[in-house]
Amino acid sequence: MKKWIMISLFSVFLLHPCVSEANVKLPSSVVDISKENTYPNPTQNLPYLQPSELAKELLASANVKIKNPELIRLLNESSISSTPFAIGYKATIYLGQWPLNYESTETTTNWEYQKVNTNFYDNRGGKAPVRLMYKQEMQKHVRGGLTASVPNEEAVKKMMLLTAMSKTNLPLSFSTFIGAGTKKEQMYNVHARKLGYLYAYAPAVNEKGKVTYGEVYIVLKGNKKSVLVKNVTSQGIGAWIPVQDRLSFSFVSSDIPR
């Protein structure tokens, strides 16, 4: 008796909750520019997939932990009909080689990941302090990325991004912009006979861990169904993930040009 495997287009998503920054203590030099940024960065509301009942059953049966949202989506889109006459029926369906899960070992933040702007005032000829304010001179595109080349890079980046967002509660993205003309009403005094330099840096999270790969099969035996993973391998991986709409300021007063 044949058993039919049908593909439906149904999958359920739970949107990532609005981020807060309770898990990371922000230095006093770090400011939020989300309202002032002249470039509207899209919010990275990556979906958390809610497994279907079938997907839950298959995931629980797997011999290796599966957390890849794309693979869970594929299982969500599958349906296997049951029949009371399936005694003796056997089938093995190959789904391909997948990154199965990512395990984080270290998550740190570099608040001065990339310098994006310098504001300057020469007050060497002045007799009174002058206030210097941040203004973005040119649009800047801050990019992150993986520290090594791995198979199925986009799926790995999604898993690492979800992990880093969960651990830090920071608004993260592998690509973010600071728009030209962005201002912040935070003043710095350049004293008389001094040069003032205000540097702005884009922060980023450094995520490190291990990604596990394997060949995934759906095994059907009678009315039983399970997931089998073969040829499992692991690889160390790291990533730099910029923090959206946050800047770290550093003010320097000097007697001579820098």
Rank of each mutant, 00 (worst) to 15 (best):
L195D: 06
N76M: 00
P257H: 15
I93F: 03
L75E: 01
L75S: 01
S8G: 12
S52M: 04
S11N: 14
S104N: 11
A128T: 12
R73G: 00
I33S: 00
L14V: 14
Y94W: 07
N231V: 04
V227L: 13
A180K: 12
G125V: 00
Y213N: 06
V12A: 13
E185L: 08
Q139R: 12
V227Y: 02
F13V: 13
L75H: 05
K90A: 01
I33P: 00
P151C: 08
E57Q: 12
F85S: 09
E70K: 13
T83P: 09
A62T: 07
G181L: 01
T38D: 02
Q235G: 07
P17C: 11
A192V: 03
R131G: 08
A128D: 13
R124D: 01
K210C: 09
V130F: 08
L54H: 05
Q235C: 06
A239I: 02
P51T: 04
G181K: 01
L172N: 09
P151Y: 11
A155N: 15
Q136L: 01
S81F: 12
Y113Q: 07
K210F: 09
T147W: 14
G209W: 05
G238M: 03
S250E: 14
S149Y: 14
L59T: 01
A86Y: 02
M133D: 10
Q139K: 10
L71R: 09
E57N: 09
Y188I: 00
N63F: 05
A202V: 02
N117G: 00
F13I: 11
L228C: 08
Q235R: 14
V64Y: 07
R143S: 15
D255W: 08
K3W: 04
P203G: 05
L161E: 09
N45M: 14
P171V: 06
P84T: 15
T233R: 14
A180R: 12
N223S: 12
A202W: 07
M133E: 12
L26K: 11
K158G: 08
Y89S: 03
S254Y: 12
K210A: 04
G126V: 01
K208T: 10
I72G: 04
P99H: 04
V130A: 10
W4L: 11
Y199F: 13
F249V: 00
A164H: 03
K224C: 04
Y201T: 02
S79K: 10
L9V: 06
T83K: 12
V211M: 06
S79P: 04
K224T: 05
G145M: 06
Y121I: 03
I256S: 15
V142F: 05
F174K: 10
N23V: 06
L146I: 06
P17F: 13
E207Q: 15
K67W: 13
S253I: 01
A55C: 05
A91Y: 06
K35I: 00
M159Q: 09
W111Q: 07
E103P: 05
L220E: 04
V64T: 10
H191C: 05
N169W: 13
L195W: 10
D255R: 13
V150S: 06
